[in-house]
Simulated scan of single mutants.
Amino acid sequence: MNTYPSTIDTRLRPLTAWRAVRALRDDPEDTRQIFVIFRALRGKSGYRLFARFADSANGRRILAERRSLLAALSDHDYLSALPAGSVGRTYLRFMQEEKLSADGLVMASGSDEPTLDPDIMLFRNRMRDAHDLTHILTGYGRDPLGELCLLAFMNRHVRNPGQLLIIAMAWKRMSGEARKAVWEAYCNGGKARWLVDQDYEAFLARPLDVVRRELAIRAPHRYEALAS
């Protein structure tokens, strides 16, 4: 039977999530609302996710080393010196083309429980900081369909109901082909290796195509057909 530290808020807040959904619908660029939705609906799924991470070999090592993925992704000198086609160089180009910064999600995410266990805080920060890197690994862009596909893909890994709510919110307005692309992403996510405990720092210097193959990440054919 799972027990949850008293500092973990596992209550579901559907009204908070619904207000955030309406705000996001009015302003799709208001990224902060996505984090509000995730927090409002994560319930016990977030702690179960952390428990699985902390029980894995990579997770234990990352926690013991007090890793900061944000620091690695913010080191542009290191990333720019990596080989062409590597995960890190591709990530850096993506961030520059989209005019993003690794700490942009820190500001968008807002505050969380300030008294969390340090290990849980490190894990949550790592999940947040990995978002743009998962765009690179999965091949989904930052266009609206790409973001929905990434949510569908990652739902197979993190199981946050908020991801499905955001997809459902957009479903009626999507074309049949767009829906097929989202479904393909959901299926591809289920076939890939679990991404949550991966050693992202070690991936940065390695060829992107090799990393995708090792992680069993399939090409997003339906999304690519619509995005081209």
Rank of each mutant, 00 (worst) to 15 (best):
L63P: 02
E184R: 10
E29R: 14
S111T: 11
G189P: 03
A216W: 08
R213Y: 08
D199T: 10
E147P: 09
T7S: 15
L226R: 03
A227G: 03
Q96D: 14
L204R: 09
P118I: 14
A192R: 09
Y78S: 11
L164Y: 03
L164S: 13
R93V: 09
D55P: 03
W194S: 00
D199H: 10
P28W: 07
Y200P: 03
R67C: 09
L79N: 01
R179D: 02
G190T: 03
F38H: 06
D103Y: 05
A20H: 06
L195K: 00
A152D: 07
D117I: 08
E214D: 15
R22C: 01
G189W: 00
N125Y: 10
A108Q: 13
R128S: 00
R61C: 14
E201M: 08
R61N: 13
F38T: 04
S175K: 12
A170E: 14
R212K: 15
M154K: 01
S80W: 15
T90A: 02
G190A: 02
R52L: 02
L41I: 01
L165F: 03
F203A: 08
S109V: 06
P28V: 02
T7P: 01
A227D: 09
E65H: 10
F38E: 11
E147F: 06
A17Y: 03
L12P: 02
R48H: 15
I8P: 01
F153Y: 10
R206Y: 06
H76N: 12
G59P: 04
